[in-house]
Simulated scan of single mutants.
Amino acid sequence: MPTSTHTESDSSTAVFAAEWEQWHAAHERRRADPHGFLAVTHLHWLGAEPSRLEGVPGIWSVKDDAVTVVLEAGESLLRAGKELNSGAPNAEGGIAVVFDPIAEREGINLTAGPAVVELAKRGGEYIVRPRHPENPLLNEYRGTPAYAPDARFAVEGTYVQFEEPRPTTVGAAVEGIVHVYEAPGEIRFELDGQDLTLTAFNGHGPGTLSVLFTDATSGKTTYGANRSLTVGAPDADGRVILDFNRAVNLPCAYTDLATCPLPPSENRLEVAIEAGEQIPHERQAGQ
C-alpha cells in the first residue's frame, strides 16, 4: 500500500526534529566543556605597567605588541605541557617569558594547575582570561532553552559575493573596543513574505559563512544583543540554507567576561525569527 502524504510529512518532521535534537545536545556538551567560556572567572586587560592578575600566576605586561609574564619562585605556568618557569632568573629572582605577537581574534592557552589561562587579542588589546573548571557559572549551568525545531525557519537563500571583501566595523559586548571583520558577501532570502538580506562573515570551516543578527524576538524571548548562525558553503549557484533553528547564543549571553561582536546595523531584522536558542536561564531572572 502506498505511503500517504500525511505519513511522509510526519516522518520528515520527526527526522528534522531528531537531527536538531542531536545537534543541540552536542552543542550543549561543547558549551559545558570544563575549560569553555562558562569556566572564565576573570577578564584582565593588559597594559604597559607590570601587574599581578587575580586568578593567574605571574606579573603581566604588554609593550610593542609583545606580552611578558614574570614568574617568581614557586609559580607554575605551562605551555603545551612545558614548564615556562625554568631557566636563569633575572636580577629580581624571577623568570621572564615573552610571547610572540598574537593576531586579532586569536589566542593561546596556558595551564596553571587545574585552570587554563587564555592569552588573546581582542579589539587590538591583549586580554588574559583564566578558565577554572570549578567556576560556579559552569557548575550551576542548567542548559539553554530553545524554540522547538520548525522546518519553516530553514530557508533557502542566495549568497552574493562582493567584488572585494568589505571591512565591516561592529561594536562589542564590552565598552571601549570594536571588532573589524571582512565581509566577503551577503545572503538574500525571503521569510514571512519579506525580502531580507544579511551581511555574512567568513566562518570557521572551509567555505562556511557566519551571520550575526538580531530580530523582533531579541530582548523578549531571545538574547537581546546578538545571535549567531553558521551557514554551509554555497553551492555553484550560490544557494545556501539558513537554518535558524540552529541560531545560537554567543558567550556574552551568559557572562559579562566576554568580548563578543555585535551585529552590523543591516543585520538587525524586523521580522520575528521564532527559532533557535532563547535567553539563557542565567539571564532570565534579570529581564
Rank of each mutant, 00 (worst) to 15 (best):
D243G: 13
H24Y: 11
P261E: 08
E164M: 11
K63D: 05
H281V: 14
A200P: 05
E270L: 13
I127V: 15
A14I: 05
E106H: 12
E277P: 14
E282S: 15
S11N: 12
E72D: 14
A32E: 05
L262E: 13
A120W: 04
G176Y: 08
P165T: 08
A115L: 01
G143S: 12
P165D: 07
G93C: 05
F244T: 06
Y254V: 00
I102G: 10
I273P: 00
E277W: 02
T168A: 03
D195V: 14
L38V: 01
E175Q: 09
I108R: 10
D243I: 02
G238R: 09
V240F: 08
G94S: 00
R79Q: 11
E270Q: 13
T199K: 10
R246N: 11
T158D: 03
R188D: 02
D237T: 11
K121H: 07
V160A: 00
L137G: 03
D237V: 04
L71R: 01
F37W: 13
T214P: 02
G123A: 01
I127P: 05
V62F: 06
S86Y: 01
Y181N: 00
C260Y: 07
P57C: 12
Y223T: 11
E134G: 02
L84Y: 03
L257I: 08
Y223H: 12
E134W: 01
F99V: 04
T208C: 03
Y159L: 06
S11G: 02
N202W: 04
